[in-house]
Design a binder for these strands. Structure first.
Lengths: 290, 290
DNA sequence: TTCCTTGTAAACATCCTGTGACGCTTCGCT
DNA sequence: AGCGAAGCGTCACAGGATGTTTACAAGGAA
């Protein structure tokens, strides 16, 4: 029940991103032979791992920041299905590989439907377990491919994942971890509206309970810092009843970002609704021409 | 035929989770018995599917816009590994499920390492194949977020579900959540008349009580905003005693519809539908109540 | 005409978000 | 260890946006 996971803790930063990068996984099983063999193999790969002997609550799993969990349903006893469903629901980003004794087709189908990502039947070769875990994890990592590559620019701010920080000119916004995750997530969405639930589950790692205001609060903190550093721009836009959208919009009338103004002579009279009397340039950080 | 498939499968993002949404998959196999059973099952699920008898080049696979591919490596012969590797490299977004005869651990590991998402050993139950395909697709989809459904165009308005908003030129209509749901629902119906009950139950989620005027009220609000933004067009048409129909109809007789960006094809042929040509016997609309 | 359906507008009731403050916990420093 | 600052999550409140209901006028159908 302690925190320590393995010796090599911070040896490999989580977001390393390589195909064969170290993962952080947990094994929930009691079969000592299996555990031993698997552990040895995991050690050799340099994956951080931890063996659990009994089911953990969802938030405990979150705090472990796992990439994947290998679980023998036999350990869970009769509430296996319920537990599996709850965990999959709460941690949509966690890879879950069931590795258990003989089962029927119906059981396997049920497990997969409830949210398991793979199902391996014992006895099995540890190498195959590892390959399947990798396969499961591989799928989730891909979109973060841009990490460490190009810093993201929007209006005056520059978001640099390599520093976990955003800048305006030379000045840092002094974002905290959560704040940075949030702005990165929003900016990544390329101007799409993100619903609160999605923001929460992707940034916090587990599903949001109704009525949680955390996202709002952090949006406010972000807005404050953005406003202070870049007063002539608006970045985070509220979509009432839905969520937030990130898009740099200048408050200056003349500072028109030459984008794709094109030839559309929008026959649309602007500020009629008590807007902020600013031009309608809804231009995003990406030319949404395509 | 070709477009009949893409047309509307993504049109059910309402469920967001998309647990049971229709998928598009291909089966590359020659085992007629297996194919037959699997096909029948896929049909019942309403998944678009296609049977292939020989390996396809990557670009062909791209053009099929598949969610997943189920493949028996035996069909590929000696170049199976090479082919698998090439395909996985070329289409990182495609879910690949190997479903093949007896294999060694080494073979399975190799396949998974090369990029396969799952490996099933024949003989196997079609239900399990389906469950595993679902699992693979579920995992694959989550990060990429919402399906990038192309924006819906009608007359001058553009409905973008990624922003929960409709636009005319550069101007947003400033639709509220309900208003947007309504216009999206109507526009999705491709000019069919929707009864109030259906509109209500699909947009509000529960059945309408007699005498509820909510739909009417929102139709009015929508019409107002549409009228202000695009005065020369009519979009929502009342069908007395039945419901509403969405169809862009220009009020200008001579000006066809060259006014807006020529680049955007008016994917919506307005006029031909239900003009004044015939009276109100469109009673025969399909009441596809659920 | 007479009844029923739809358009319109406003009043009303709800829900949603912005905001500041308050504890709790973690972390760094002395 | 003790202390203080910073980060994080929760609360409660207020103002505003949105959804729902009601009432009446206008338009179609019989």
């Amino acid at each position: 029940m302690t925190e320590s996971i393995t010796a090599r803790d911070e040896a490999t930063p989580s977001g390393a991103g390589g195909a064969t990068s170290a993962l952080r996984i947990a094994v929930l099983d009691r079969d000592s032979g299996f555990i031993q063999v698997l552990s040895k193999r995991l050690d050799r790969l340099g994956w951080e791992h931890r063996v659990l002997a009994s089911p953990v609550p969802a938030d405990a799993a979150v705090s472990m920041r796992l990439s994947a969990l290998v679980v023998d349903l036999a350990v869970l006893g009769p509430q296996a299905w319920e537990w599996l469903e709850r965990l999959c629901g709460a941690l949509p980003d966690l890879g879950i590989v069931v590795c258990t004794g003989p089962s029927t087709v119906a059981q396997r189908v049920r497990g997969l439907r409830l949210g398991a990502d793979d199902w391996i039947t014992k006895p099995c070769h540890p190498e195959e377990v590892i390959a399947r875990v990798q396969s499961v994890v591989r799928r989730r990592r891909r979109p973060s491919g841009r990490t460490e590559s190009k810093p993201l620019m929007a209006g005056e701010v520059e978001i640099r994942s390599d520093r976990f920080q955003a800048f305006v000119g030379d000045g840092s916004l002094d974002l905290t971890r959560r704040e940075f995750e949030l702005i990165e997530l929003l900016a990544d969405a390329e101007g799409r509206v993100l619903e609160r639930e999605e923001i929460y589950s992707r940034s916090w790692g587990y599903t949001m309970v109704r009525g949680d205001r955390s996202v709002d609060v952090f949006v406010r903190k972000l807005r404050q810092k953005l406003e202070k550093a870049s007063p002539r721009w608006r970045y985070i836009h509220t979509h009432f009843g839905i969520g937030y959208r990130f898009a740099a919009e200048s408050l200056d009338v003349d500072t028109v970002e030459v984008d794709v103004p094109a030839s559309v002579p929008a026959a649309w009279d602007a500020g009629d609704q008590g807007k902020l009397a600013r031009p309608h340039q809804d231009r995003e950080l990406t030319p949404d021409a395509l």
